[in-house]
Design a protein around this nucleic acid. Structure first.
Lengths: 107, 107
DNA sequence: ACAGTATATACATTCTAGAGTATGTTAGCT
DNA sequence: AGCTAACATACTCTAGAATGTATATACTGT
């Protein structure tokens, strides 16, 4: 089974994830939108399912694929410790909060 | 050249990035810490360099590799639109801000 | 029962990243 | 100048992922 970042390493799969932001979609819809064959799309979705990015709901012959938060949350959490590097505020966050509170009290 | 997520798809490379959080390190240090051969480490660092994750500073025979924020920031930005999925607050953020302002005015 | 639709999977093929080994290169030291 | 240390790169090999094609499965409607 592919790891989360391995799953995201393929542009086509990131694209699928982005398309699913608006809500569940069927295999055929996604295949059309991305311009790939149905078997290819089924396989991508299989990978996304195994790695927890999506869930499936059966509806007659159709399968509705829906996005799941967990893996995306893991990505967000992995990158979080580096945020201070581009938002140079972490070391000053405490004093900023203090200053805001003081301003409020002295109003 | 590998894309950002392709770079992160290899655990060894994520590990390198994490080790560089404390500050710059040399090739030898990193190779020892991760228990891999020097050529392997050099190649990982080459990939990380090409994709913008690190910069190098030469110091005699030593090369000090340092972390760069940009690619990590891109990861954070990519995942940002999905944050509402696990923090179910986005739809209520507006009214929360309003409530906070009201509380403040009625103090 | 039959035909058509929607999807999954098996199979064969291609391609490339990763690893190991050997070698090249540059700098410092005696 | 010769030797060693630190690192980069060229080369070869292998494993596995991605793709396309063909086929299997499941459900609907007539």
């Amino acid at each position: 089974m592919l790891s989360i970042f391995e799953v995201l390493s393929l542009p086509a799969r990131r694209e699928i994830i982005e398309r699913l932001r608006d809500g569940p979609k069927s295999v055929g819809e996604l295949a059309d939108e991305l311009g790939v064959g149905q078997p290819v799309m089924s396989k991508h979705l299989r990978v996304l399912r195994d790695s927890g990015f999506v869930t499936v709901r059966a509806d007659a012959q159709r399968r509705w694929y829906e996005l799941r938060p967990e893996p995306l949350r893991e990505v967000a959490e992995w990158v979080e410790p580096y945020r201070w590097m581009w938002e140079g505020r972490l070391d000053r966050l405490g004093e900023r909060l203090d200053a805001m509170r003081d301003e409020e009290e002295n109003r």
